[in-house]
């Protein structure tokens, strides 16, 4: 699995970029979900979020998952193109697959890349 160093990670597999405020799901998460066929962003630009609020709903052929805000703040951007190309979440989870951008808030209780990798390894069965 791949977990860029510059990002922070939630236990529920979201990543947060403290530099840009971008939020998405991790490589581990997209791999677990397998082929993603549907994504719906549940929040709108300008909305104030608290940590843990549902921000998106993702479905693959065999699973479905809610995505939660890993940080608080105001939604400054929403990746509107994502619903047209949900497979982007599989192919580029840390790039084109970003979901929303947050500003003016604070990160929740997040792990760094190393901590997250250890956490994921512990979950493999």
């Amino acid at each position: 699995m791949n977990a860029p160093e510059n990002l922070k990670y939630a236990k529920s597999d979201e990543w947060f970029d403290p530099a840009t405020g971008a939020v998405g799901i991790s490589d581990y998460a997209q791999n677990q979900l397998s082929d993603i066929v549907f994504v719906e962003i549940l929040v709108e630009e300008g909305e104030e979020l608290t940590v843990g609020k549902p921000i998106a709903s993702v479905e693959s052929v065999k699973a479905s998952s809610e995505i939660y805000a890993p940080a608080s703040g105001r939604v400054s951007a929403v990746n509107k193109g994502l619903s047209e190309k949900p497979e982007t979440l599989n192919s580029d989870p840390y790039g084109e697959g970003w979901m929303i951008k947050l500003e003016g808030g604070a990160a929740g209780d997040l792990m760094d890349a190393g901590g997250y990798e250890t956490y994921c390894e512990g979950r493999a069965h």
């Binding site: 066929v37 549907f38 479905e59 693959s60 052929v61 065999k62 699973a63 479905s64 809610e66």
Partner: peptide, 13 residues
Amino acid sequence: TLTAREQHIKRER
């Protein structure tokens, strides 16, 4: 198809 939106996967959601 789109079975992931149904009850056996999404359960209470």
